[in-house]
């Protein structure tokens, strides 16, 4: 029978893989560069998106996301939610060890 830890680990792995692929797809689609494909695949836990945000998004729109096109905005919202989901699973794993 599958226990909680195995369930969290499996969910975490699937989430990590799917979100890495999705973020890599976005970065490659925006930049058409092998470097961003590499960064997208290799940096986990949202570091890929974070670096992209610092290098491009903030320079392009700063904090005014209204300047993004509808498609860009939709893709970014999904990508950030994927990253949040990764951290939630990670914290759920960590939370198991710090239960009061």
């Amino acid at each position: 029978m599958i226990n909680d830890l195995q369930l969290y680990l499996t969910t975490g792995f699937i989430l990590l893989f799917v979100s890495q692929c999705y973020i890599t797809y976005i970065l490659y689609q925006q930049q058409h560069s092998k470097l961003w494909f590499f960064i997208g695949m290799m940096l986990p836990l949202g570091m890929n998106l974070y670096i992209y945000q610092i290098c491009y998004i903030e320079k392009q729109v700063d904090n005014d996301f209204g300047q993004l096109t509808g498609k860009e905005r939709k893709q970014l919202r999904k990508a950030y939610l994927f990253v949040l989901a990764q951290y939630l699973v990670l914290f759920a794993l960590f939370g198991g060890y710090v239960t009061p």
Binding site: N63, D64, F65, G66, R73, L76, R77, K78, Y80, L81, L84, L88
Partner: peptide, 24 residues
């Protein structure tokens, strides 16, 4: 907090994702 405006609801279909973000 810097992403709050990205998750500002612009139409009804965006509500679930935005609510999830605001809760987190």
């Amino acid at each position: 907090s810097f992403l709050l405006r990205l998750f500002h609801v612009q139409n009804k279909r965006e509500i679930p994702m935005s609510v999830l973000f605001f809760i987190v």
